Amino acid sequence: MTKKEVLLEINHLKTYFPVKRKSMKEEKKVVKAVDDVSIEIYRGETLGIVGESGSGKSTFGRAILKLVEPTEGEILYKGQQIQHLKGNKLQKYRNQMQMIFQDPFSSLNPRMKVGAIIEEPMALQLTLTKEQRKKRVKELLQKVGLSEDTMHKFPHEFSGGQRQRIGIARALAVNPEFIIADEPVSALDVSVQSQVLNLLMDLQDEFHLTYLFISHDLSVVKHISDRVAVLYLGRIVEIGTKNELYANPLHPYTKALLSAIPIVNFDEPKQAIPLQGELPSPMNPPVGCVFHTRCPFVMEKCHQVRPTMEEMNEHQRVACFLYDK
């Protein structure tokens, strides 16, 4: 089997946010948004990240791009450490890693015309003439299914799906290799979601892109991803190929998530697995396994020891004592 090339390697990444104290006597507290995540992203693949709201998905993506500053850990892009880079040294990586944001309206400057929005990153990061930039803007609009006239209009003149296409064109403007898509279709109508997803897949093939696709919608993730990582309270509890993970989920949290997917074939009914209680606070995550407060299979060991990620087969790894060898 051909060995896959690692484009991005994340080792023990932590992103904590300090909580403002009401008085000097109050103990310092932090929100542990991302808590010791290690993962590899292979060139040309789409890695899906799923989990409940508040599980740290978006913060994880933003920490990789240093849109928020990681607290600890190592980020290697093509084998080069980038977590400590700043200023001009970081700038050269900006055109290789881009982001598509969740809300296509708030991520676009309402005072700028679409052509200027897409052209702006080129002017900052690429050595192109004004004519070359204009030509590329027109090409990118065509690639994402929009007309040339789009460049002369403002974002408010478009629908949500069209605005997200503009956001995709802006992300492609500087010829990136790696794109983080943070809930790119969650704000869109269902009828438009499939169009945008198929567009992303077509662009991936054409431009040889690598995606980190963040979503809470398991059906969407299954459609677009090659591998899927399940995040709970800032920690990865299971990762595997989409076929293996969806057909044979191992972690109790993964099973509960998949059981919540709406049924399409009523001839094959399935029983939802309800989770007891609420998601614990990331300011005070449970000791040991972070899922033990809601797990139906909790053991005494789960209260004290944090399970490590173990390889169960060629395509799947899980952090759970139910599979302790």
Rank of each mutant, 00 (worst) to 15 (best):
P18C: 12
P262L: 00
E120K: 07
I64E: 01
T46I: 14
P155R: 01
F17T: 10
V37H: 02
Y42C: 13
S147A: 12
P286R: 05
A63Q: 01
V264T: 13
R317S: 15
Y211G: 04
P252N: 09
K78T: 08
K134M: 13
S186H: 09
V318G: 05
Y253V: 01
H84V: 06
A169S: 12
C320V: 02
E206W: 02
T71W: 10
P307I: 10
H84N: 15
F297N: 14
H156C: 00
D35W: 02
D267A: 08
H208Y: 08
Q195F: 05
R21Y: 02
K89M: 07
S259F: 11
L257G: 00
Y16D: 07
V230L: 07
P285W: 03
K78P: 07
C289R: 04
Q164S: 03
Y77A: 01
E300W: 01
L200Q: 08
Y246V: 11
S281F: 04
T241M: 10
K22E: 10
L322S: 06
Q276C: 13
D35M: 05
Q142L: 15
G167H: 02
K3N: 14
M283S: 11
E5T: 15
A319T: 02
L188I: 02
V19K: 03
H12M: 12
S281R: 08
F154R: 13
R21S: 11
G87S: 03
E52Q: 06
I49M: 06
S219L: 09
H303C: 06
K57T: 02
G161T: 04
G161I: 07
V221C: 06
A169E: 10
I39C: 05
Y16L: 08
E268Y: 12
K28L: 14
K25L: 15
A63C: 04
L47V: 03
K32S: 05
K22R: 09
H156G: 08
C295A: 01
V237A: 09
E183S: 14
R133P: 05
D182C: 12
N198E: 04
L13F: 08
L76V: 11
E45S: 09
P104M: 11
D149I: 07
S194F: 08
Q162R: 12
M24L: 15
L209K: 07
I118L: 09
L90E: 09
P155A: 04
K78L: 11
K130R: 15
V298F: 08
K3W: 07
R294M: 01
L146I: 13
Y42H: 14
L146N: 09
P296H: 05
L67Q: 07
H292F: 06
L275P: 11
V264A: 12
T210V: 12
E314R: 05
F213T: 01
